[in-house]
Each structure stands twice: as C-alpha cells, then as structure tokens.
Write a protein that binds this DNA or RNA. Structure first.
Lengths: 162, 162
DNA sequence: TATTGTTATACTCTATAACTATA
DNA sequence: TATAGTTATAGAGTATAACAATA
C-alpha cells in the first residue's frame, strides 16, 4: 500500500537507484484513475461469470436494456450505453443470429426497428441477470450493503450530468 | 432518472409498442457498469485538459510514476498500471524521443533499464500534475470533499485485493 | 432538411508468441 | 530455468464518412 513520500535516494551521488516499492499515491488521488481500476476489476469478474452464456459485458448490457425496454430502438440503445450506431449493428446481428433478439417494425416510425427478446432470449437473460447479481455480490464482497449503495450513488453523481 | 418499473404496454395486444424513456435501472445496480461510466466521464475531461501537453491518460500515468519513482523499470510500470510489456515499449520510445524521459542502466540488474524524467520532463509534469488536480476538481465538482474521499476509498476497496 | 439504420473503413487499444541478453 | 525488454502481429474496441429509406 503506497503512502505519500518523497523518493528515497538509495545511493546518493552514485549511480541509478533501484525502486523497490512503487509509489502510486498521486495517481490514486484521481477519481478517473481509481474508477477505471475498479471498473476493470469488476468487469473482469463479470467477464468470467458471463462466459458460460457467451455474453460479453456489452452484449449483456444490450440484452438487459432490450429485456426491460421491449421495442427499444438501436438509436436508443446507443444513447443509453454510449455506443456508436455503426458499432452496434454487428452486435445486434450476432444476437439475432443466435435467436436471442428479434427486430420488428416500429409502430410510429418507418425508419426504425423495435428490438425484442425471443423466448430463448428471455430465458437466457433470466439466468444471466441472476448470475450478474451474484457476480456483483462477489465484487462488492468487501463492501457493506450501505457502502455499496454509497459507492453507486457517488459514481452516478460523477457521470450523470446535472 | 430511470426508476424501477415493469415495461408499460402502450398498445396491449396490438402491434409493437414504442419506448419513450429508457429504463436502465438494472444496469445501474452494477458497480462495474457505474464505475465504467464514471471512469469514461472523468477520463473525457482529463483527455481535454491534457491535450495541450500532448499527453494521453496512459502517458500521464507513466510520466507521473516515473516522476515519483525515479529509476522505475518498465516491468514495474507494467505491473503498477496493468499494461502489458509489449504495449509499453512504444509509449516509452515516444516519450524518450520527446526528451521527457531517459533510460539509464539499472544498478543491480543488467537486463533492466531505470527510467528518469529529463529536466524538461520534470517541468512538464509539474504543470501537468497541477492541471490534473484542477481537472479532478472539475470532475468532482458536484461531490463534497468528504464525498470525494469516500468515493476514492470505496473504489480502492473494490480493486485492491485484500 | 434531419434522422434511423447501415456499410465501409481507419484508428486505437489490448493480447499472444517468440526472440535476446542477462540472472 | 526464469526474467526484462523487445519485436511482430493479431484481435477487440472505438471512430468518422457516406449512403438509402423515411420523417
């Protein structure tokens, strides 16, 4: 656990000193740095638990939004998840080939397609969301329930514009 | 602000319903999801503020660790930052060409090279770290100082193995 | 004229295998 | 035999431009 300190001079005036313990204290003062490390750590666990379902985190996010928002459009998915439209196309195509989602014509907009889970998609997501919740518990095992709520609330404050 | 609810059936029994407001409540229960969104948001601000220095977040992280750990090796940088060795080489080469860092032989290990900031690297990083701190204040503007400390402490609990 | 979905494409980031020189 | 640094390369993720169909 790095603490704030000035670099030691192991051999003052002589040749290059060696670093034994790396001081990361400045980086650790940055929210972005810590959030990124935490995200990568949590996503790593998530990745492993979702492997049996053949879902990467983005696939899971897409399917979860389709599950809770039947009829959602590609554009809405992109906005909600911060994905660019061209990069969503391939994902949805793959999920459609796996018969997890289906495209149906949008009721009010002839340009758009509404996305829906197929019955097998619904079954998969019931299991996958249960597994996601379990992975979540695993990640946040060292946090109390109150700490988890606090953490998520503070993170939302950071990324949700007023 | 999405709340927990079951999807409405705007036209029950009829054709595909349209989604007006996207419900992201399930995803928002996941630490990984929120941490990733917060990290991307913070890094976006960071990216803009570091642009005048010609530094991307990773470059800044590398230089900051070299600044606070003179003589640090590539391997130590990789471990500390979660970067793979082959991907660090190009970054250090670029920073060396810009005369911000220098490689010197390691005192105890003939295979390794110690990394150091050059005088101009030191000057750049003094300004860059000040700017980073300012960007930090900007990102966390909607958090009280106590909330910032809490957030960072909780994030560390998530990604720092016991 | 603006927007949805799409294709093609380029750029960045991340990952793996293998080599060299030193330990 | 193992490790530090490196090269080459492959794959995943993210970006912009442009087009057809519809609003």
């Amino acid at each position: 656990m790095a603490q704030l300190r000035t670099p030691r001079q192991s051999t003052p005036g002589r040749s290059a000193p060696a670093v034994d313990e790396v001081d990361t204290s400045f980086l650790e003062t940055l929210v972005g740095y810590n959030a990124r490390r935490a995200a990568l750590s949590a996503i790593d666990v998530f990745l492993q638990r979702m492997e049996p379902f053949g879902l990467k985190p983005v696939d899971f996010s897409v399917l979860s939004l389709v599950a809770h928002n039947p009829g959602i459009t590609s554009r809405q998915l992109c906005t909600a998840l911060g994905i660019l439209p061209p990069n969503l196309v391939g994902m949805v195509n793959t999920l459609e080939k796996r018969e997890l989602v289906a495209r149906k014509p949008h009721p009010h907009d002839g340009r758009a397609m509404g996305l829906y889970l197929t019955p097998s998609g619904q079954k998969l997501m019931r299991d996958a969301e249960r597994t996601a919740a379990a992975a979540e518990a695993e990640v946040a095992a060292r946090l109390s329930p109150a700490e988890q709520r606090t953490l998520i609330a503070l993170l939302k404050k950071v990324y949700k514009p007023a």
